[in-house]
Design a protein around this nucleic acid. Structure first.
Lengths: 178, 178
DNA sequence: AACACTTATATCAAATCGATATATATCGGG
DNA sequence: CCCGATATATATCGATTTGATATAAGTGTT
């Protein structure tokens, strides 16, 4: 599943410009798939040449002309076919946790700060999601929102309960360096 | 933090070939950062030209010559400097959950299967991690392992408790299609 | 004997990321 | 009323990453 497929999927909710698709990625999928202009605009161009979306240009004075994309019948078929395929396994990437794998080389104070910041960012994220969750119209979006909250809460809990392990490693490293 | 930086980090644990670094990514970091040969070999080449690692070639008959990389003093300094920078925020990508955001367009049976498969893959992963967790030598690796288990357990719990939301959406979609 | 897995290198096209460029409108605060 | 921040709207571009492929031989299993 690539950006092209997800653009198709988002267009099933209605016509949109590239800019609006970017927003839809943020509003509906940001938790599990983020895409920037650098991948969205090329994707829409390819989809257009493949005939999976159509594009009409709306002239605007004083602004770049709007290009409004619509999914075609071929596009709907292609999208459903893509959805039949087994999805790739989930991927998680955390620079913070990667940093912590080298805690024994780092000052204990820095390690503690990095953990504090991560917990803080999760807490902030939970707060945002909690606010959004109730406003979501569809059940699937509620599900996703709740998923994010549940997973992040358990991550915070784990970090609070076990951060001493990492902090101990950093302290040991500092002593060894002396 | 890119593959280059993480190669440097892994080389702080001892000299290694590109092949061994790939394994180290799998053994130590797979949960939070996976890299393939296509990024590791170019990374090692760049690090070598930058003088952050050195490389000695061990001739082997009947096999490609081993190239054993060692981190240099410059490399150690560069790595620690990189570790000082604030890590980017965590990224999560799930094709399965992305699929579920379009549940209203899919057969309910397919939606259920996708959820079953995801729960199964998490359960398998937890089992593997549980086995590895005890064998890990360092506290930081234990921490990471435990993190993976805790987060995936809560994800399974949430999906079991709330999958009916998504499955309801798929059923509604099927009815609407009639 | 057959088959799969491990060791070991490396490249390449395609996809993606992250930053940047361009231009105007709008909206709130000082 | 002006200033800065945010929103609208396009797009490109270098650097990085992904995922597949190629090569070649040893090792282990049934």
């Amino acid at each position: 599943m690539d950006v092209k497929t997800l653009c198709l999927g988002l267009l099933t909710f209605g016509d949109a410009t590239g800019y609006e698709i970017k927003k839809a990625f943020q509003d509906r999928l940001s938790m599990l798939y983020d895409a920037g202009y650098g991948s969205i605009y090329p994707a829409l161009n390819k989809l257009t040449t493949e005939g999976l979306v159509s594009c009409r240009t709306m002239a605007q004075s004083k602004r770049p002309d709007k290009k409004i994309y619509s999914i075609t019948l071929d596009g709907q078929i292609a999208f459903l076919k893509e959805m039949e395929r087994a999805p790739a396994s989930d991927k998680f990437r955390s620079e913070t946790l990667a940093t912590l794998m080298f805690a024994h080389l780092l000052p204990a104070s820095h390690v503690s700060k990095v953990i504090d910041d991560l917990i803080k960012s999760y807490e902030d994220n939970i707060e945002v999601l909690s606010g959004e969750c109730d406003m979501k119209q569809s059940l699937s979006e509620k599900f996703l929102c709740g998923y994010g909250i549940a997973v992040k809460k358990s991550a915070i809990q784990y970090m609070q309960d076990n951060r001493h392990l990492i902090e101990a490693e950093a302290l040991l490293g500092e002593q060894a360096a002396e």
